[in-house]
Design a protein around this nucleic acid. Structure first.
Lengths: 224, 224
DNA sequence: CATAGTTCTCACTAAATTATCACAATGTTA
DNA sequence: TAACATTGTGATAATTTAGTGAGAACTATG
């Protein structure tokens, strides 16, 4: 398990590193939001521990940016008395927060709690059933799609593509990644094949066509 | 959906409130067992989140009292180090518990899990070995199938296939899965064998043939 | 061991799906 | 604005898939 610790105070990064490494985690550090973003582009982490107040780029903005491409769990560190920050944190979906000064043991306990939950969730994913957004309903088990209560017959690829976009909603996905995940690693066709299927999928889901956003120079994403 | 949060720490009540309200729940608070009991007398809640250690009246005693008149699901909060063996031994039937310090997202995940479970339970009605859909009757014990009151002689495989499809109705089943479950894991024949049996089964069940839906690129499902 | 019933494979057909291409439309940059 | 790059889309050919009939292989039973 890999952890990214983001804080401008060297002392804090150090303390968390000590404890986390003791529990067998691999730890990397960043000292501000900008650095965190670039580290996340380089490699994947299982969880990010991030301070809010930092030079260059604050924690919230960094998370917002990172979440555009990756859905990594986040534990926020906030200074005492910053209640409004918490509120904002809920909206961008942080997983937990700890108020400074904290006990390292408590931080580790929370990290462990988050990671067990995430692991469990991924187990359940395969059997998980339904996604509903306004009048768009995706029944993964029954392989049905309803638009405003009306059943739509999607082709297999259309269904799988929609499912993949929705499972990774709000995340920009490159054509390459989509091909790998939906078509499989053994597909060696054109990138643009994705475009054609997006076109057909858009036609199939009526007014929700606009929720499939084109991310220029990259690929597509489903946006709630 | 209405939630009652019972804890003597204002901070904890507040955190849960923020997350729960963000997810659309209506939240009320109580700061000890006595207050919880009186709140429950006033109005109904869909779930109670309750700490164990509280002044005036502890969580267990409060639940015991509330359960005398109402059967509300309960999520318990317990501090680390408290003997939660007690929870298991306890006869009052707690639905879940979370150890402090917890991640708010974890608590929400558990709340959601409990509530969906409760909703599902209410939907379920035991079928007792018999499945009836309109004029289609499947008697699992007697291994008989009736179509509009008329007995149909299915071959063993036809019966087992129909039974499997019906037990998993509204779920799209791959040919592979069907083979594994109906034929057994030691069958190494063709995928398409399933097709042939579906063909025969369809012919055997008259007008209900259309309830066996072909899921293109995947397999089949029985749809009510 | 003969027979009827059942199960499985195969080959063929019809139909649906998919991938690619060419060109149009749109966005971006110098 | 012109030149360029990227995405949208219609048409179409190639591929894949499911339905089915015929018959071989298998099984149980007397």
């Amino acid at each position: 398990m890999r952890i990214l610790v983001v804080d401008d105070e060297e002392k804090i990064r150090h303390v968390i590193r000590e404890y986390a490494e003791f529990e067998g985690y691999e730890v990397k550090e960043a000292k501000d939001g900008m650095e965190a973003i670039s580290k996340c582009k380089e490699e994947d982490y299982d969880i990010i521990i991030m301070d809010i107040m930092m030079p260059k780029l604050d924690g919230f903005s960094a998370i917002k940016e990172i979440r555009k491409t990756k859905n990594i769990p986040v534990l926020m560190l906030s200074a005492r008395g910053e209640e409004y920050d918490k509120l904002f944190g809920f909206e961008i979906g942080i997983d937990d927060y700890v108020v400074k000064p904290f006990s390292p043991k408590e931080v580790m306990a929370r990290i462990n709690a988050i990671l067990t939950r995430v692991v469990k969730k991924e187990d359940e994913k395969s059997t998980e059933g339904k996604y509903i957004y306004q009048g768009l309903e995706l029944d993964m088990l029954g392989r049905n799609v309803y638009v405003d209560g009306k059943k739509k017959d999607l082709t297999p690829k259309e269904f799988e593509l929609l499912q993949y976009l929705i499972v990774n909603k709000n995340i920009a996905l490159s054509r390459e990644k989509i091909l790998n995940e939906v078509w499989g690693y053994d597909f060696f066709g054109e990138d643009r094949t994705v475009d054609t299927h997006v076109k057909m999928l858009r036609n199939s889901i009526g007014k929700y066509r606009d929720n499939i956003i084109t991310v220029r120079g990259m690929g597509y994403k489903f946006e709630e």
